[in-house]
Design a protein around this nucleic acid. Structure first.
Lengths: 345, 345
DNA sequence: GTGAAAGCGCTAACAT
DNA sequence: ATGTTAGCGCTTTCAC
């Protein structure tokens, strides 16, 4: 079979415990034996059995990330992949492995998480979404397993989470449009039950209010994270007797629909309508015209989530760790909002 | 600590081995004890320790997928996520966990794979790319670990792999354009060192040749998997004294660049130039006009890779398993190629 | 600074 | 049909 700690010990003329100590860089081991043992390891092609180690040490040095059920929405795929990259990069750096799991439905998800955590295959979990009353979260909380939420959930305000300040992000985006001279600004939102839609809408409202611009209900339309939503929103907006001259749009993909709708209706971006949206997926720079977007640092979100989780796993409880991380966002201004409204308005 | 097999055994008044047998549905266990033991498990909240099990059974029921170093190219993110979904879905169905790993460079990649396989943390690996002389492949081959390649590599013809028949796919795409009446068909290729570029170019050539259309070197341009490539290709093509009326494009993202270039130069798609590309990423239907594309079944590619790998891991060697899986592709004809050339040409 | 021994939680002969 | 026993490969007291 494969070479074990005993083989190395025998060949090196030391005891298995010594080899083990060399492995973990135990302080009280002589430079010389350490050197010799390491050479033998190399020579024999020894590799520690991770399972055996983890059986006794009761730690797996792995975390899992739970993918929500099939994300139909395209942007989610880009979003998740970017997130996963960040998670994996940081985890690997910290010596942790990342296990991906997904369930067809909530029940399966809980089963998977339960098997993984209870079965001591992973030390903690990262959740990539926030639902209202999530059985997975409940499970994790009940059993006091370390976990982190990417996103924000009103149901669980005290949970370890990393998130974007969506209120502020929307505020900034709206202020940008106002700074360009716009006063008639509409908002194309996502599903109203999603925290992210709510937050962004709030930021939009605050910006208007701070600038003394009245909010107009008919300039706010709800939809989904699909381009079709944006497309339909345009036939609605552009049929209004009073039309907005600028739009804040909840997501880049929706913007693509908006762009298409506007194009078909014969309006020019940014001259007739300026737009800015969120997430800054790589396609934004490729569209015609390139789309202004709020970069929310997705990779960073994942990286930080992983870091926070691992920190919590390793934490001995002697100090108190933060339980909310806010990843900074940044406006990426491109052509779609680079147009100053004529003063005459 | 947490409840073990012994606790269950004691409470149920049986031996640990009996409990173990219940766990694995051993045939020679009485209906009655099985029932009782299972109840006790439930009652005590018992969960098998996966590490302990895997230490003795010498099987981890996990596989790992190796992400190539940072994929700058956007489409790769979509591609990988879709692939991963397929892999995870099938693996979970088969009772396997999926571990994601990535390395900053080739050396790190080998180290990661080596740690995972030698350390007995996973039973096999999925590689998502094919390089010319890949140290990871060499490692895996040398040590005879089960692994599967998504893609094709000329350097390793005998390796377990799942792939698209890119020659045929390009052949079909080209024939489609020919069927629309085109005879002046150009090809926008990707990096010439990539197998996929080579294969698609070959399919294109074969289709032309089968239809008695002469291949024209100046209508073939190489680039990268970036929209910019497509964009630049257009200024080239459209300055030619004789211009193609249709284009086969190596990837959807490149097509977006082509679309943009054509638009800026004042050409209409599909009337002036018809185009079709590959991969059918979800954005193809959203572009203006919607893009014809060859769907290569990315999810299926992942699903099959996972299936093939697990089959190989479990395989006892008594029969011979296939070592190459070809995932069927399918033309998705949309507006960008829905234009029949006037007879008068 | 190093060794001996016990045991992590489980499975798998070998008994009976 | 079930119990007994012996490890899987490693870490970790406790000695010296």
């Amino acid at each position: 079979m494969s070479v074990t700690i005993k083989d190395v010990a025998k060949k090196a003329g030391v005891s298995p415990s010594t080899v083990s100590r060399v492995l973990s860089n135990h302080p009280r081991i002589s430079r010389e034996t350490s050197r010799r043992v390491k050479d033998i390891m190399e020579e024999l092609g020894y590799h520690p059995n991770i399972m055996a180690k983890s059986l006794v040490s009761k730690t797996t040095e792995s975390i899992c990330v739970i993918l929500p059920k099939p994300a139909e929405e395209l942007f989610l795929n880009l979003f998740f992949m970017e997130l996963i990259r960040g998670i994996v990069a940081q985890a690997n750096r910290a010596g942790y492995d990342v296990l991906i799991s997904s369930g067809g439905n909530e029940k399966e998800e809980v089963e998977a998480v339960s098997r993984l955590l209870h079965g001591r295959r992973v030390d903690g979990a990262i959740l990539l979404y926030s639902r209202q009353d999530d059985p997975v979260v409940n499970f994790l909380k009940t059993h006091d397993y370390p976990f982190v939420l990417v996103g924000r959930s009103d149901s669980y305000p005290d949970i370890l989470s990393v998130d974007t300040d969506n209120v502020q992000a929307a505020y900034d985006a709206t202020r940008h449009l106002i700074a360009q001279g716009h006063e008639r600004i509409g908002f194309v939102s996502g599903p109203p039950n999603l925290v992210v839609s709510k937050d962004r809408l709030e930021g939009y409202n605050r910006a208007l209010s701070d600038c003394g611009i009245a909010m107009r209900k008919d300039w706010i339309v709800e939809g989904e994270f699909l381009q079709d939503s944006g497309y339909r929103a345009m036939s609605f907006f552009m049929n209004l007797p009073e039309r907005p001259t600028a739009l804040v749009i909840v997501d880049d993909i929706v913007s693509f629909g908006v762009l298409r709708g506007l194009h078909e209706l014969g309006y020019k971006v940014p001259e007739d309508v300026s737009i800015i949206s969120f997430n800054n997926i790589s396609l934004t720079e490729l569209s015609t015209p390139p789309l202004s977007s709020v970069d929310i640092g997705i990779y960073n979100l994942g990286y930080t989530a992983s870091q926070a989780l691992i920190q919590n796993i390793r934490h001995d409880g002697s100090s108190v760790l933060p339980n909310r991380y806010v990843i900074p966002h940044r406006l990426m201004i491109r052509e779609s909002s680079m147009y100053s409204m004529p003063r005459s308005l």
